[in-house]
Design a protein around this nucleic acid. Structure first.
Lengths: 312, 312
DNA sequence: TCATAATATTGTCCTGGACAAAATAAGAAC
DNA sequence: GTTCTTATTTTGTCCAGGACAATATTATGA
């Protein structure tokens, strides 16, 4: 108690706790423990109380493994490979590549002390490319660049926050400017528990708005029962869910099944985001949106299937 | 694979699995099990494999308990109470009072199916009262009304989300419209770890903007080290922190002390929000902003103390 | 070549024990 | 009375190691 130094930080110094690893990688606590038991990796240190402390490099390694698993590879093999082999596989993987230097400008701008040029640059690109292209092409490139920068230590957390904040403002302003009102279809947009991912949500909202569909966003972390309640109350045509890549597929699937069962049959259920991308067969009654660029066509399909009737 | 019906649904029939309860209530698996062991509730059934199956009513009960806990009550007492007692407590709530009927209009508008009138009403009030008055007078009344409504069950969570979303959009748009750039003082605005409270942050940002000071908001949950890093990097004059009422005072004090020690002496440190209001003596070197209405005067003071020099 | 059965892999659940962190109550000092 | 310490209770999360259903992979036979 008198020695805050020794008390305060099981976190910062050597590594992070198992709960933090779960949050960061999307791998469950049980999974992490059973991997350690079976494969000998990860092999966290222990703090003074015998609790696992994962060094940053191992978390990095785990993140790499998670990425490969999302591509369809199986853990048994991956966990026995040395790390060099893994990066190699990742590079070989589907459609990596695409020399991404189109987004390189963001880093120096973030690093500069003055934020006005950054804000201006973002605004200008948005204006020049248009909302749709900005969201589908520019932003993913930027996000990836920022993510990489963060992992390699080139970008500090506050700089990532700053980026998120500025882009968010741009998107919100753009959506606001489109100023749509109660058109059909009526869309409810949200994420389930444990999903933060505000930016992804906003990207979808922007794309929908660009295509004349104005979603009602409930923000992140809406419990399933409340999603159902909201859909009922607002007479929603489509409930759209977004899952980030860190969300375990099993969980998203369960959530979708439960939600599908609880929603009225006439309400469509759409799901998308990195957590579902590439997942072979989907859940019955759920429309999986594989990529951002699929949103517009899917919306068009909906319109084709629901010809406009007079009245409201 | 051949019998999807029987396979798929440990979910629907009698109840739901522990993972589903965790997702729906936000109570961790470990917590659910330890409550069962200690207090005898919840008391799930078991399926053929010995796994817990929670009946819907118990999930409902758990959700009620969670709500009371969010209100500050402790589980030990709640878990021993019969369900009738709980609903009663919920209605009683903490220190209601203050006949606040100026904000009563929000509830029926939220309840109505159509969101356009709500959006319009908010926009109109903002335009009529001006940003400053809207933030200082209207919004706190609305927030309180919404909070009360939620606790008493009159307002569903999704309606609260909806309100937050709409107000947020209004504020952001207003700030954006003021469109200020790199003026002095340079302010860094954020909350520390574990603080969500986005709306409060945005209110402060709006007030500052209304007074010609454009804060750089880092969003919520910035680690202290990163706040310091950001302040250093951007040559910040003032770091402003917001603490919600739910944040324990002890923690905010510690955070402020730590931050004060780490920041350069020339950087001022301001702190405000419900978590600090009324707290007698403050931390040395920290300026406590008691109420939203104090922001403008405090800012004026800063300007008086820092007469404008030519150049920047 | 394709469907079906046998086998291997893998994630989640289980029990029951432990203990740090948070909240509260009790006491001391200004 | 109020603020600061110090004990005591409460409460959430972690641990180990066993088990087994769900899923993926391989072998087998028509």
């Amino acid at each position: 108690m008198n020695n805050p130094q020794s008390l305060a930080a099981p976190v910062s110094a050597g590594g992070i706790s198992i709960a933090a690893v779960e949050r960061d990688t999307g791998l469950g606590k049980d999974t992490l423990r059973v991997w350690e038991r079976r494969y000998g990796f990860p092999q966290p240190l222990r703090d003074a109380f015998g609790e696992r402390v994962y060094p940053t490099e191992q978390v990095e390694h785990l993140r790499l493994i998670k990425r490969l698993m999302d591509q369809g590879q199986r853990p048994g093999a991956l966990l026995r490979q040395p790390i060099a082999e893994l990066t190699e596989r990742l590079a070989a993987g589907p459609s990596r590549a695409v020399a991404d230097d189109t987004a390189d400008w963001i880093v120096p701008l973030l690093k500069a002390r003055d934020i006005d040029p950054l804000r201006a640059e973002l605004a200008q690109r948005l204006a020049r490319d248009g909302l749709e292209r900005f969201v589908i092409e520019t932003m993913p490139a930027l996000n990836r660049r920022i993510g990489d920068g963060w992992m390699s230590g080139a970008i500090a957390i506050f700089e990532e926050h700053l980026y998120t904040e500025l882009v968010q403002n741009q998107l919100r302003a753009a959506i606001h400017a489109l100023g749509g009102r109660g058109t059909r279809p009526q869309i409810l947009l949200t994420t389930v528990k444990d999903e933060e991912h505000i930016l992804g949500l906003l990207m979808v909202e922007a794309l929908l708005a660009a295509n004349g569909a104005f979603a009602l966003s409930l923000g992140a972390q809406t419990p399933i029962a409340d999603i159902v309640g909201a859909a009922r109350a607002t007479n929603t045509d489509i409930v759209a869910l977004s899952f980030s890549g860190a969300y375990p597929w099993r969980k998203s699937r369960d959530a979708l099944i439960e939600l599908r069962a609880a929603l009225p049959a006439r309400t469509e259920l759409w799901a998308g985001g990195g957590g579902l991308a590439g997942r072979g067969r989907s859940v019955a009654g759920v429309r999986v949106i594989g990529a951002l660029s699929d949103i517009a066509p899917t919306l068009a399909e909906w319109h084709a299937a629901h010809p406009r009737r007079s009245g409201h």
